[in-house]
Design a protein around this nucleic acid. Sequence first.
RNA 1: GCGCGCUUAGCUCAGUGGUAGAGCAUUACCUUCACACGGUAGGGGUCGCAGGUUCGAAACCUGCAGCGCGCACCA
Length: 1093
Amino acid sequence: MNEIPKAYEPQSVEDKWYDFWLKQGCFTADPKSAKPAYSIVIPPPNVTGMLHMGHVLNNTIQDILSRKARMDGKEVLWLPGTDHAGIATQVMVEKQLKKEEKKSRHDLGREEFLKRVWAWKEKHGDIIINQLKKLGCSCDWTRERFTMDPEYSRCVQKVFVELYKKGLIYRGKRMVNWCPVSQTALSDEEVEMKPQKGFMYHFRVEAVEADGSPVKGVSGRPLTPALSPKGGEGEKSSAPSATDSSAANAASNVSKSAGASKASTASGPLSPIGGEGQGEGADERKGGPEIDSQGRIWLTIATTRPETIPGDTAVAVNPKDPRYAHLIGKHIVRPLPAELPREQKLIPIIGDEHVDFEFGTGVLKVTPAHDKADFDIGTRHKLPLIEVINADGTMNTLAGGPLAGLDRFKARKVAVEILTEQGVMIEAKPYENNVGFSQRADVPIEPRLSEQWFLKYPAVEQSKACVEQEGMGSAPAPGAGASALAGDSGRVTSFDAHGKSARLTATDGASVAAPEAGALPKMRFHPQRWAKVYDHWLTNIQDWCISRQLWWGHRIPVWSKKANEGDSGFTSLQNQLNAFKQNGSLIHMNLYTPHARNEGGTNVLKHDPQENYFVRLDVAVDPTEEKIISLLEQNGFTQDPDVLDTWFSSWLWPFATMGWPEQTETLKKFYPTTDLVTGPDIIFFWVARMIMAGYEFMGEKQFALPDAMPFQNVYFTGIIRDKQGRKMSKTLGNSPDPLVLIAQYGADALRFGTMRSAPLGQDVLFDEKDVELGRNFCNKLWNACRFRQMVGSADGQTEGEINPALLTSDDKWILVRLDLAIREVSEALNTYNFATAVQTLYRFFWSEYCDWYVEASKAAFFGSDDALMANKLAVIDFVLGNTIRLFHPFLPFITEELWHGMGYSKELPENLGGKTIMFAAWPKPFNAEEKEYFGLDDVADKIAAAKYELVGLGRNLRRELKLDPAKKLKFILKPAGELATAEVEVLKILLNAEAVGVVAQNWTPAKGTPSAANALGEIFLPLEGLIDIGAEKVRLTKEAEKIQSEISKVEQKLANPNFTTKVPPAVLAEHEQRLVEWRTKLAHTQSSLEVLG
RNA sequence: GCGCGCUUAGCUCAGUGGUAGAGCAUUACCUUCACACGGUAGGGGUCGCAGGUUCGAAACCUGCAGCGCGCACCA
């Protein structure tokens, strides 16, 4: 390492070492290795994705864990790959197609379109992979997987057929979350509830008998006034109301009854039905039937979606609601579509407990085809379904003339206009409610009845039980210290291959401590509070809608054919298929008869006119069974057009990437994986489902592995936000491009800065300043090594063994600090406290090693004692050698460069750091023997610490006396005890002094000489005649006051008998000691004051 | 509505009962021979509020407030 540049230049270093690591196969995991295994599977980024700060955080953590594990002597597999991101990828290619060729996917056809998607994937799919490489990720790229790989697809299909065979997958007509933009069903997890500003519309409907005649013998309160239609729009007033004379009459009655209501109020109000005897609240309660001047009864309905009125097939009231109960069984006249004859608009008033009579008017319009809750009501009451909204979100012809063809939101406005024209719209109150949005397309989803595939989740109970909940077991102290104390020599060049990591030991400990160890959880979440969220979701779990109306994805491996009554030709085919089954083919058949189907709690409709067939045979079969498929297709069977939810493939990720269903060497060695690192936002999407898949497909029955769990620890990262706390988003433009940052500051700087600001369990407020700090830090590290090269031999050879006899207090001090740093960093990593680890390293290296030790060492290097100098070099090499290794997981590139540049690799065996720092042993703290050998005791440590404190006091004097900092001054030191010459030399250097004169105890300074003192001694700044005695008096008086107040505080405590009798002895001793120290300081200050006169 | 988290220096955050901390920002000074991507010294806090426990509370308990997140949801 000759000719070292003054500043670290990451660009010239990073690619070089990454290529080296790749060529040397450093990332490749060997399942045959005798080393204990450590494994992580990457959360597969979308193949369409670009690296963002979230990836940086997540993958840096995984890389830190992987690199640390290698240094711990583990055989490490970090398995990378990407997922096919069904909707995102398809949408992206569709957009491109539209832009470049002005075609839709339908113009190309399914096969051709898929070719285009694959072509896109081949061209762009490795962008994010290459970005991860830039970040330094040590993934085993020889095992890179993609969820649409042929082998992976086989796993997905096999899993589908097996679950189908088990009866866990079924096809059903259900209300699903429909995205009108991507035109596919979505799972509940893909729907995001957002508050949305809109209106709560109140409109009035007439209650009638089943034959349409007015309801008799019912009273009501007078009509409240309705909104009047906008004037001057002649064409509108003629449109709906002209076709419905009763509505027109009602409209004309509004103004009359408004007047009438005044009159009736004067003579005594007409109470709502049942209003009496219900207490005051009942009268206050809104709603209740109203009566117009002609004696007709009206009900007011509240809705946010008036455009769905044409789809209403009932109105519901709570049977316990005294205002309305008596009207159950009557009908109402549905106001839309207005053009229908009155008799076709009669829908029943039904009673249903679901209706909350506190809410709205207590009258609920029921739209079974377009609302989940209404669908359930419809099922309970066998209501007909009227679908009025198309798949693309526009209204169909059943919605009525003015609405048909309009977008649902435009239709809402028009519906309001029509109701206003009719004179039945009472009010439109601004209203905010939560609306489900499609996560991908960011548009409101439309509840829609459609036939989809659903999965009843497997292994729910096991998955629930395996995750340790807060408070279930004590969190034992991590085993970092225990296992690490077994170190051998000062220069750590060997490792002991413990079978288990400290983390594992910790969890096992918890299991053993509690009774019935076998049944207890073995998986831990970090931070653990997420376990509760996980548990809550599993407790309220709903079946998973796994089908998507897309082309890009794993096509559902079900072939089916419908047949009419009498056409019973399935029997011989079923026999043929059964023969395949007997021979071991993965196939399962289901004969489905819609009109005779037992509903069994599911909402399958009978007598659906759209299902105009008698019987259907569904055959799920592994798509590699070509014979079976061609047999089916010859018989007129067609494959289901839908594909599977992308998560239905990624939930298999931990084992499908390792060669499942074969019992591969890789699975045996690396499954279950050790750690999973991911964001809490996909705890349901991915983490929970992987755990269930693990139990279902890796459990003992299916697969003879000791444990089915896919991972032992799950670390949840925070979410990266900008410095104002906003989520990173493309639209806000607040998401920096990590590659730009890498180019500008270096990958190590980006990693360091990100990790330093990422506390456990909290969101990360990212600021480019952090990366700058990372760069500065790398530069500091670089220059500290440069200093070592400049003061030492220039041939790149490291110095020899440390001679304990020559160690100064500074040497011992830094060795103790190093020991502490090793312990703290190891412990922090074992408990996933990455920010703490980074901060400890920062403190140790910058504030301790550079600020004090390196500065102090200059005394030796600028001195003339060759032996001392050589020993100091040995200490520096020892400390730097350990420091660089401690930094390696965080800063892989610069540490590798320095490892070789400093020559630390030279004496090591090739596989233990000789070739690369990646396999150098993780530093160990000193054991008792080593501490004794080096003489690392409290005394040496305290001498150095006192020395540095005294330096601080000396510098302080200089500043407070406003002396020219550039001027070299003479100090005088009166040591409290024996003090070696070398120590005085260090003081001289650190004080930037011309000289430090040592004087005897009986020496007295000239009057007014400023001084300071601590345990090491007293230091004077003799400046005859230069001192402003008045100012010095003020300074010392102020200081004395400050000290006095501290003394009072402690004295007060010690005077309290409650304190002295109850407090632990150690605390008492510490307080007494403190008091002595303060009193000594006070005495010194006072004597200085006296000297001033 | 239920659950979770947060509230400490201007900012971002450490701090699990015993002398209130770090980094950044800021102020003053310094290009002295590793580093100005640097050094030295400083200023800056009623630890959200109110009670309680304790000899002692930033920390533990209770309540409240504000902010954020998740789940559920009423038309």
